[in-house]
Every structure is written in structure tokens, then in C-alpha cells.
């Protein structure tokens, strides 16, 4: 962070994020921005495991695990949201560890099918274990986060879909962004790039592929769990349909369309793929056709995603020297 330009840009971005609710006051657009934020956290978590060349199709399942854990911890165990938020991340991460340890030995399509199966198992468990997860009816009436009060000084409460949720999410985004950015810049991140490009060579150089993959998978799922917890308390209702295979595919599309080369690509992907369906909403049933065509056009003509193309056009120098 020595570069003054970088500090300036970061501060600018931070100021823009803080100011945004004053510019965009329409609740519809605020809701869309929050959706973008959640998609960003999920897709950037997915990008972590993609940086060693593995594609997980269970991201939505871990999102769901976080959402359901948080709802249950708050509503049945009576915990405070502020405790259940990190806890649901930890639960997701723990399950990711259990699943990842055996499954990450599998490569490519085999990893695809095993994560897809896990995602289906998770969805079916949410559907079938009615006493705990509410079955197909889901869980409704999830309370808002408890107000933060420092006696006599100030108090922040969370009205339904209020702007306070926006600031909470921005905080989560900044934390996850920072963590992922540090991973990317570290020696660890560079090793991951090496694993993706030449796994045999990396192994012969003494890089522990398994350890690297597991850590990335677990961190990605931790943030998916956090995003789930936030989502549950923001929506106040969750059901098993929210966390299906198709949502996992959406996060993958976001990551690839935006460009997995840089975390900024994920931002672009999340923003574009949230806005596009709203922009083409008037097309009604043609909407999916436009969406599909958009995905095809980007894949065919921007091989490294939209970020890759922007980088080429504006000759942006890579912020980090690593591969991810």
C-alpha cells in the first residue's frame, strides 16, 4: 500500500461506497445493490478455489448452510445476530473442511459432479428435515440484527430493508475483499497460481497442493456462510429453493463473465449480471434469451472476461503480480 495513487483510489472507492445511499435513495435500487454485494462475496469466494483450477458447484449450498445456521441459531438457540454471523461462517467453513478433505482429491469434472451431488444433498436435507429447517415452507420471520447501542452515545437499529443493512454489507465486503486481496498478494497466492498452471511441476517443487486447495476452499465457503447469514436476516425469509444448483451456476457465470484473473473482474460480473435482467425486464419471456446471448457474446469475444478486455483496452497494469 505504498503507492499514493493506490491509497487515493482506495479512499475514493470507500467514499463512493459511503455516499452511495444518498445518491440512490430508491429502495428498489438499494435492494439491487445489496444483491450485487452478496453475489460479489459469493462469487469471489468461488474464485478462490478456481485459482487452483477447481470449480465448485456447491457454493450455493454453503451459502444456504450459512443462512439456515444463522436463522436457527438466532431463532431457536436465541443467540444474538452478531454472534451468529461469524458462527454461521465457521459452520460453513467446518462443513467445507469435512467435505473438501476427501473431495478435493478429485479433479475437473469429477470434482464438478461430487460438489453438485453435495449441493443436491444439502438442498434435499433442507427440504426433508422439516423440524429443523422448515421443509419446503422454509423459515420465515427471521428477526433483524439486534440494535448496536453504546449507552448514551449512539444506537444503530436495523429496520426492514433499511440503509443500515447496506452499511453492514459494505463492511462485510471490505473485510472479505481485504482478506482475499491479501491471499492473492501473498506467497501463498502465487503458489496457487503455479498449481493451476502446472500442478505436476508445483508438486515437484514441494508445494502441497492439497493443503493449498483446502485452505482456499474453506476460506471461500466461510465467506459464503457469512453472506448467507446476512442474506437470511436481510430477506427475513429463506427457503430451500434459494440455494439450488442453478444459483451455484449463477455465481460461476458471474466469476467467468467478469473475469477470474482479478477480484475487480468479480465486481464487474456481479454488477453487470444483476443489472442486465432488470434492464431487459420489459422483454418478459425474451429476457432469458437476451441473457443467454449476452453470456455467449462475452465468452466468445472476451476470453478472459470483461475485466480482461478492459485491461487490454485501457492497458491497466496488474495490481498484483500473482496469477489469481
Amino acid at each position: 500500500m505504498s503507492n499514493p495513487l493506490k491509497i487515493f483510489t482506495s479512499l475514493g472507492a470507500l467514499a463512493a461506497m459511503l455516499m452511495l445511499p444518498w445518491v440512490i435513495t430508491d429502495p428498489r435500487y438499494r435492494d439491487l445493490i445489496i444483491t450485487m454485494g452478496i453475489y460479489f462475496i459469493l462469487a469471489s469466494g468461488l474464485r478462490l478455489i478456481m485459482s487452483v483450477g477447481q470449480v465448485s458447484f456447491a457454493q450455493a449450498a454453503f451459502w444456504g448452510i450459512g443462512a439456515y445456521s444463522s436463522a436457527i441459531l438466532v431463532m431457536k438457540a436465541g443467540l444474538s445476530f452478531w454472534l451468529s454471523l461469524p458462527l454461521s461462517g465457521i459452520i460453513s467453513a467446518f462443513i467445507a473442511l469435512l467435505i473438501g478433505y476427501p473431495c478435493l482429491r478429485l479433479k475437473g469434472p469429477y470434482f464438478f459432479i461430487i460438489t453438485m451431488s453435495f449441493g443436491e444433498v444439502a438442498r434435499l436435507v433442507f427440504t426433508s428435515w422439516i423440524d429443523l429447517f422448515g421443509g419446503t415452507n422454509g423459515i420465515s420471520g427471521i428477526p433483524a440484527p439486534d440494535p448496536i447501542t453504546i449507552s448514551g452515545v449512539f444506537s444503530i437499529s436495523f429496520p426492514p430493508r433499511g440503509v443500515e443493512f447496506y452499511y453492514l454489507l459494505m463492511l462485510l465486503i471490505i473485510v472479505s475483499f481485504f482478506v482475499m486481496y491479501r491471499i492473492e498478494r501473498s506467497h501463498f497466492g502465487k503458489a496457487c497460481g503455479a498449481i493451476r498452471e502446472f500442478d505436476d511441476l508445483a508438486a515437484s517443487l514441494g508445494i502441497n497442493i492439497m493443503r493449498h486447495s483446502i485452505i482456499l476452499f474453506v476460506v471461500g465457503c466461510f465467506f459464503a456462510g457469512i453472506a448467507g447469514s446476512f442474506y437470511a436476516h436481510y430477506m427475513t425469509y429463506i427457503g430451500p429453493g434459494y440455494f439450488s444448483f442453478h444459483e451455484s451456476l449463477l455465481f460461476l457465470i458471474i466469476a467467468v463473465i467478469g473475469g477470474t484473473e482479478s477480484i475487480f473482474g468479480i465486481i464487474i460480473g456481479a454488477v453487470l449480471l444483476t443489472i442486465l435482467p432488470e434492464f431487459t425486464r420489459e422483454a418478459k419471456q425474451f429476457e432469458s434469451i437476451i441473457y443467454g446471448a449476452f453470456v455467449l457474446v462475452v465468452l466468445l469475444f472476451m476470453p478472459s472476461g470483461i475485466w480482461g478486455m478492459l485491461k487490454k483496452i485501457f492497458r491497466i497494469k496488474p495490481l498484483s503480480k500473482s496469477y489469481i
Partner: peptide, 26 residues
């Protein structure tokens, strides 16, 4: 959200599907 805040509709009819209704009720 689009119907309420952009189109400014005055009434809503029709949502079917429990997930949809529960999600929009708040």
C-alpha cells in the same frame, strides 16, 4: 420492488407460490 418503487403500482394481485409470497410480504 420494480412494481412498487418504479412503476408505483397501487395494488398487487396474483403472486402464487409460497416462496414468492413469503419473500415479498416483508
Amino acid at each position: 420492488n420494480k412494481l412498487i418503487f418504479t412503476d408505483k403500482v397501487q395494488f398487487i394481485v396474483g403472486p402464487l407460490g409460497t416462496a414468492a409470497v413469503k419473500a415479498v410480504q416483508p
